[in-house]
Design a protein around this nucleic acid. Structure first.
Length: 254
DNA sequence: ATGGCCACACCCTGTGGA
């Protein structure tokens, strides 16, 4: 069983790459963020033709999330029931006995801004909701674009990023509060090469210079973490023509 | 040189991303 997450930065633009990537990789469940499509524009037929069921919730221009699955999905929930939100950033489904939550956590723009306050409130509400979900579902997986680099080793230049949005203490504390619910960061279950990231700015030739951050994560509760045999970042799609600025993260479960 | 890019709306340059 392979679970993956990928912020595609517009599914309209990136659909050919998503289909190509799925054709080349045996993924069971793919969580997408930043689809940037209203539901009536979602490419349902193309994804079903590729052999996937799909659930999604989107809006015009911004945000939007989807779960693609080779297996049946049930108990689909859109958005956090504990958080009134006009922005479409969460979708969850039960798949093969796992509760899969796909999340596009707010960016936060800059520390202290209104969007930063929204990000922290949003994360607090996510924590509270997942605490409830954890009581009902032992097998809980939280995949998505967290917009948080948990530690300095997840940042290409920690000194330059010190205190900024995506790495600030308050954001990292919220990440640790999620971990404290009983999650493991799947990527850190294994020995990993240094300087492995999931996002690189389009500017400054950042990808070529590996000026990245690890901000896309797969968190697994213990029953799933013990089944997890690998977690990798696939840099290949970031090298394609017209790439997303994020690249997929994949966890394999026994 | 602390800025460079990309997607989107809706028509042309501003907003947001991270």
């Amino acid at each position: 069983m392979k679970l993956a997450t990928w912020n595609v930065n517009s599914l309209k633009v990136r659909l050919p790459q998503v289909l190509q990537w799925l054709a080349e990789n045996p993924i069971d469940v793919l969580c997408l963020q930043e689809t940037k499509l209203t539901d009536d524009k979602f490419p349902l037929a193309e994804i079903e033709a590729a052999g996937y069921q799909v659930v999604f919730t989107g809006q015009k221009t911004y945000n939007g999330v989807a779960i693609l699955s080779k297996h049946a999905m049930s108990e689909v929930v859109k958005n956090n029931p504990l958080f009134e939100d006009a922005q479409q950033r969460i979708i969850a489904a039960t798949i093969e006995g796992m509760r899969v939550v796909c999340a596009y956590i707010p960016n936060g723009q800059s520390v202290g801004s209104d969007k930063y306050q929204y990000k922290l409130r949003w994360l607090d509400a996510l924590h509270n909701w997942l605490a409830e979900e954890g009581k009902v579902h032992d097998n809980l997986a939280l995949l998505g674009d967290y917009n948080i680099a948990p530690e300095d080793r997840d940042v290409h230049d920690p000194a330059a990023w010190q205190g900024q949005v995506l790495v600030s203490d308050a954001e990292r504390a919220e990440f640790q509060r999620l971990i404290a619910l009983g999650f493991k960061d799947a990527f850190r279950l294994f020995e990993q090469p240094e300087k492995l990231y999931s996002w690189w700015d389009y500017r400054m030739m950042a990808f070529r210079r590996n000026m990245g951050l690890r901000i896309d994560h797969i968190l697994l509760t213990n029953p799933l973490a013990t089944r997890c045999t690998s977690c990798v970042i696939d840099k290949v799609p970031r090298k394609w023509e017209q790439p997303s600025d994020h690249t997929p993260v994949i966890a394999t479960l026994d």
